[in-house]
Design a binder for these strands. Structure first.
Length: 562
DNA sequence: GCCGTTTTCGGCCCGACTGTTTTCAGTCG
C-alpha cells in the first residue's frame, strides 16, 4: 500500500513550492495529499481502475504525477525540486515553529539539511546570527527539536475517551467554569486523536486558566495566557484550552470543532454573500453580528440545517445541509442488542452469565454469544463438544434473565472454507465469519465462502488494527455486492483499535448493505464500547434504518434469513 | 493545481500569536 508514501511525496512538493513563493499550488498539493492519506483503499487499485481523478483534490496534473510514480517508482518533478534544495523537508518542518520559509533560510545561510545539522547549528549559536532570527527563535528550535524527535503520536479515541470525560467533569466541578465542551477531532469522533481541545466559558478567564494549569495530573505547562493555555497530562496527552465569551459560544464551537476543511468551505459560503465567518461569529458587511450564540443559529443563517459534528469532514455534508437532507443519525439508545461478544469459553474473560447481566444492564433485548471457531487456537477456539456444552449452559441461563440469548460462533475463514462444518453452521442462531490471517487471495476466499455457507454477519471486514495492522487488500465493491445478494450484514466493530468497517466505507455502502454494530467484547466492561461503533456509523451517515440491531430480534432474523 | 446552483476561467478562509520588527512575515490551528 503506497498511499502514505505518495501523500508524503505530495506534501513535500507542497513545501518546496511554498519555498519558491508559488501561490495556491501548495494548497492544492496538500489537499490531494490529505485525501490520499485518508483513503482506506489501496491507491494502486484506484490507479488500475483509472479512477485517480475521482479522489478529491486530484486533477489531471496530480493524477499524472501519481501514475508516473506508481509506474516508475520515481517522480521527475519532485526530483527536480529536491535537487534545488536538498534538505529533509519533512523532518525539519516537523519541528514546531519551523515551516518551509524557515527551512530555506536555514539552508541558504547555514547549509542546514537535516534535523541533526539544525541542532548542531543552534547549539553553536549560529541560528541566532541569521538576519531576522534572534535568540528566542534559536532557543525555541532547540526545545522543539526534542519534541519532534519523540514524534507526534496519535491515540485511539476509545482509549482517551474515559480520560477526557473525566477531565471535562473535573473542570465542570470547579465554580469558575460555566460551560466546558471537548471539541476538535474528539467531538467529531475521529478514530484517532492527536491533542485534546477544550472550549469553555468562565466567570473569570484568568482564574479559570489558573485552575486549569493547577489540575492534579498536569506534568508540564506548555503555554499559559489569559484565554488560551496548553498543558501535558501525566499520560503524556496534550490538552489545549480556549476560553470564549458566552455570546460567541456557537461560532467558537464550530471553529474549534472543525474540521479545517469544513470551516474553510463554510467561510467560503459566507464570503460569497459578502459576509465573514470566524470564531467570534457570522458578520455582515458592516461587521454587524448576524449569528453566533449557537451552532444551529449560525448554520441556519447560512441557510443550512444543523450538521452533526461527526459529519463535518467536508465530504458533502454542506451541500446536504443546504438541501435540508442531512440524515437523522443513529444514536446509542437506538441499539437493541449486541451481536458479537466472547466468553471464557474462548478468549473472553467473562462468563455467559456475566455477559448476559451486563446486556441486561444496558437495556438490550438480545445478545449473541459468538466465541471463536476451532481453528483459531491462539484465541482458544471452541471444539464442537465445547460448543454443545456452551449451548446447554445458555439454555440454563436463559430462563433466569429476560434477555434473548442467541448462540452463534465467529467462524474463521481458512484456505479450505470455514473452520466449522455446515451441520454446525445450522446449529447457530446467527453465524458470524471473519478473516484472521492474511492470505494472498482474500477476496476470492471471502466470495466463495459467501456462496457456500449460510452466513449472517461478516465481522471486522478490513481486518485492520490501528498502528499495527494494515487493512486487508480486498475488493470491497465485489464483496459488498455479493453480501447484498445473500443478505449478509457487515459488522461495524466497536473495539477501539478496529472500528472496522471503516466509516468511509460505511458511508459508501450504506444504501446497499445493512450493518450491525457490535462490541466484539472480550469482557463485560468492553460492552461499553458500543458508543464507539455507533460514532463510526454516524460518521458514515447512517440513520437507524441502516443498522440491523436497532430492530427487534424478529426483524434481525427476517433480514438475515431473507 | 483544482474546481463550479454566482464561474470551464478566475477565483482560492480567517485570525492569533510570535519574534522580529517599526509595519510585517511566518507559522499554526
Amino acid at each position: 500500500m503506497k498511499n502514505k508514501e505518495i501523500a508524503k511525496l505530495l506534501y513535500e512538493i507542497a513545501d518546496y513550492l511554498e519555498i519558491k513563493d508559488v501561490n495556491y499550488k501548495p494548497r492544492a498539493y496538500r489537499k490531494a495529499a490529505g485525501n490520499i492519506e485518508a483513503l482506506t483503499e489501496d491507491i494502486e487499485n484506484i490507479y488500475e481502475r483509472g479512477e485517480l481523478e475521482e479522489i478529491g483534490g486530484v486533477g489531471e496534473a496530480i493524477a499524472k504525477k501519481i501514475s508516473e510514480y506508481l509506474e516508475t517508482g520515481k517522480l521527475e518533478y519532485y526530483e527536480k525540486l529536491a535537487k534545488d534544495l536538498p534538505v529533509n523537508i519533512e523532518e525539519l518542518t516537523s519541528i514546531e515553529g519551523v515551516g518551509p520559509k524557515t527551512v530555506k533560510k536555514l539552508y541558504n545561510s547555514l547549509g542546514v539539511e537535516t534535523l541533526e545539522d539544525l541542532e548542531k547549528a543552534a547549539e553553536e549559536g549560529k541560528v541566532a546570527q541569521i538576519k531576522g532570527f534572534g535568540e528566542k527563535v534559536q532557543k525555541n528550535i532547540l526545545e522543539n527539536i526534542k519534541v519532534a524527535k519523540r514524534g507526534r503520536e496519535r491515540r485511539l479515541l476509545g482509549k482517551v475517551f474515559p480520560l477526557v470525560e473525566d477531565l471535562k467533569q473535573r473542570l465542570l466541578d470547579k465554580d469558575v467554569f460555566n460551560r466546558v465542551t471537548i471539541v476538535g477531532s474528539y467531538r467529531r469522533r475521529k478514530p484517532t486523536i492527536g491533542d485534546v481541545d477544550v472550549l469553555a466559558t468562565a466567570k473569570k478567564s484568568e482564574e479559570a486558566m489558573d485552575e486549569f494549569c493547577a489540575l492534579g495530573d498536569v506534568v508540564e505547562i506548555l503555554a499559559k495566557g489569559d484565554t488560551k493555555s496548553s498543558i501535558i497530562l501525566s499520560g503524556g496527552i496534550q490538552v489545549d484550552i480556549r476560553i470564549v465569551e458566552e455570546e460567541a459560544w456557537g461560532s467558537a464551537l464550530m471553529y474549534f470543532t472543525g474540521s479545517k476543511d469544513h470551516n474553510v468551505s463554510l467561510r467560503s459560503k459566507a464570503k460569497g454573500r459578502n459576509w465573514k465567518l470566524n470564531e467570534y461569529g457570522l458578520f455582515g458587511p458592516e461587521d454587524d453580528r448576524l449569528a453566533s450564540k449557537s451552532e444551529k443559529e449560525v448554520y441556519e443563517r447560512l441557510d443550512m440545517s444543523f450538521i452533526p459534528p461527526e459529519l463535518r469532514e467536508n465530504t458533502g455534508e454542506i451541500k446536504a445541509a443546504e438541501k435540508d437532507s442531512i440524515p437523522v443519525l443513529v444514536e446509542e439508545e437506538d441499539i437493541r442488542g449486541d451481536l458479537q461478544v466472547h466468553t471464557n469459553y474462548s478468549d473472553g474473560s467473562g462468563t455467559i452469565e456475566q455477559m448476559v447481566e451486563r446486556a441486561l444492564d444496558k437495556g438490550f433485548e438480545y445478545l449473541l454469544i459468538s466465541d471463536h471457531g476451532p481453528s483459531l487456537k491462539i484465541a482458544g477456539g471452541l471444539t464442537e463438544e465445547e460448543f454443545e456444552e456452551q449451548a446447554e449452559e445458555i439454555e440454563q441461563v436463559k430462563d433466569r434473565f429476560g434477555v434473548e440469548i442467541l448462540h452463534g460462533i465467529e467462524a474463521n475463514i481458512t484456505k479450505d472454507g470455514l473452520d466449522i462444518s455446515k451441520d454446525w453452521c445450522d446449529r447457530c442462531d446467527i453465524l458470524c465469519v471473519g478473516m484472521h490471517d492474511r492470505p494472498d487471495d482474500p477476496t476470492e476466499r471471502i466470495l466463495s465462502i459467501f456462496d457456500e455457507y449460510p452466513i449472517d454477519i461478516f465481522v471486522h471486514p478490513l481486518g485492520r488494527r490501528f498502528f499495527s495492522r494494515e487493512p486487508l487488500d480486498i475488493n470491497l465493491d465485489r464483496i459488498a455486492s455479493k453480501a447484498e445478494e445473500e443478505h449478509i450484514s457487515f459488522e461495524i466493530n466497536s473495539q477501539p483499535e478496529r472500528l472496522d468497517l471503516d466509516w468511509q466505507n460505511v458511508k459508501k455502502y450504506r444504501d446497499k448493505l445493512k450493518y450491525v454494530i457490535s462490541t466484539d467484547a472480550h469482557s463485560k466492561e468492553q460492552m461499553n464500547f458500543m458508543h464507539l461503533g455507533v460514532s463510526q456509523a454516524r460518521r458514515g451517515w447512517c440513520s437507524k434504518e441502516n443498522i440491523l440491531n436497532t430492530q427487534p430480534i424478529d426483524g434481525v432474523r427476517s433480514y438475515l434469513n431473507g
